[in-house]
Design a binder for these strands. Structure first.
Lengths: 211, 211
DNA sequence: CTCCAAACATGTAGTGACTACAAGATTGGA
DNA sequence: TCCAATCTTGTAGTCACTACATGTTTGGAG
């Protein structure tokens, strides 16, 4: 739903919801998730505390309110052409995601979000949960695409992709220091694509006898 | 530390700690983690609420108080003979763990613990965190065993093992219904070992061009 | 044996997320 | 115009957890 649709009541509701979310995100990024109380958020948004909980079941939901990125891999699999392997489709999807993230405007924002999560145990816990949901959605998509897939194999592919994503996120964070220059960014970009190749190659061909 | 070691003070401290943990575990298994309050635990153990928190930083720690199984994979890698591949060592370790779990006495207990976790969001969150710690320990062990291993590869192996373990746990839970007979247990055992073979084969050789 | 300081247990008072619930205020539609 | 659904609000409470002050036990020094 956007701000143009719906009845006046619905529009107003969406408006206060967005106001709360916006104000909350600002506060969290500025002062850290754990240092901001829900009472403060409510006061800053000029609503009652109850109103906050009417729109967001938990404090964490105030932070993870953006578009559901966790549906990405599942839809990528669903929309992939039939002749493309699932692993390859997932790889392409992941590459697209990080390329979007590395665009000039998005990088700083993403770093800020990332740092805020890293500083808060509660947000880290929530991120783990979201990753698990992403995995479950991926399992469904995989079985929908190929009904002959055993539950075990589907879950294994999904878990492997989740593992790959996690490792690559760590690599990404390491490759991109907070004060990265444009030139560092270029090399980081190249190195990251190499890392993506390496990781997805392991998914396709395994570790072999080496390890 | 055991009950025979240490000064009287240390023995007493350990005693109350164990009393609290024992009472708490009983209550959690009976009535579910979320339905039991810390106040109740303290009352049942006949100590002050503060005393509970003196011994256990969080309520979840009352449940996850057993011997740290999460160090298993790391020590398995550390103690594996040099000529055994890491993947194979981890596979053997996992097999040993589930064989121990399938032994007559342990199975029912494990199922009870498992069901209690499944029924509590808080415990599930904690399990995810513990799995992450296990992964981190495994990364260290891997790099200790082979200093030439890149951080990326080490993290990838650890994440892949964690993924395998997770998938196999799900399979195990599915293969062993609550009211499993002895005969079902035998077939489940066989099927499970097949699943373990399959999953670790993927780690070694990948998904190939099939997926 | 005495006595002190450290370690452990306890009680009180509070914070912060979250729920239940009852009672306004607004709005869509009959 | 007016009712009922919806949204918002305020109050009171629960529960995990912390800070802190006080009481109690214990190991060890003299």
């Amino acid at each position: 739903m956007t701000l143009e649709e719906g009845s006046r009541r619905e529009r107003k509701k969406l408006l206060t919801r967005q106001a709360i979310s916006h104000v909350a995100t600002d506060l969290f990024l500025q002062r850290g998730f754990d240092a901001v109380t829900v009472v403060e958020v409510a006061a800053a948004a000029d609503v009652a505390v109850q109103t906050v909980f009417n729109h967001f079941p938990t404090k964490e939901d105030l932070f993870f309110d953006e578009t559901g990125w966790w549906t990405g891999p599942a839809t990528a699999v669903r929309e992939a052409p039939a002749d493309l392997s699932v692993i390859e489709a997932l790889k392409q999807h992941y590459l697209a995601v990080i390329r979007g993230r590395l665009e000039a405007g998005h990088l700083a924002t993403w770093r800020q979000f990332s740092a805020t999560i890293e500083a808060s145990p509660a947000l880290q816990a929530r991120r783990r949960r979201v990753a698990e949901q992403m995995e479950e959605l991926l399992v469904e998509a995989l079985q929908e695409r190929d009904a002959s897939l055993s539950g075990l194999t589907a879950r294994l592919i999904a878990a492997q992709y989740a593992a790959a994503q996690k490792v690559l996120e760590a690599e990404l964070a390491q490759l991109l220091p907070v004060d990265a220059t444009a030139e560092q960014l270029a090399t980081a970009n190249a190195e990251l694509e190499r890392a993506v190749d390496e990781v997805f190659a392991v998914l396709a061909r395994g570790f072999g006898k080496k390890y």
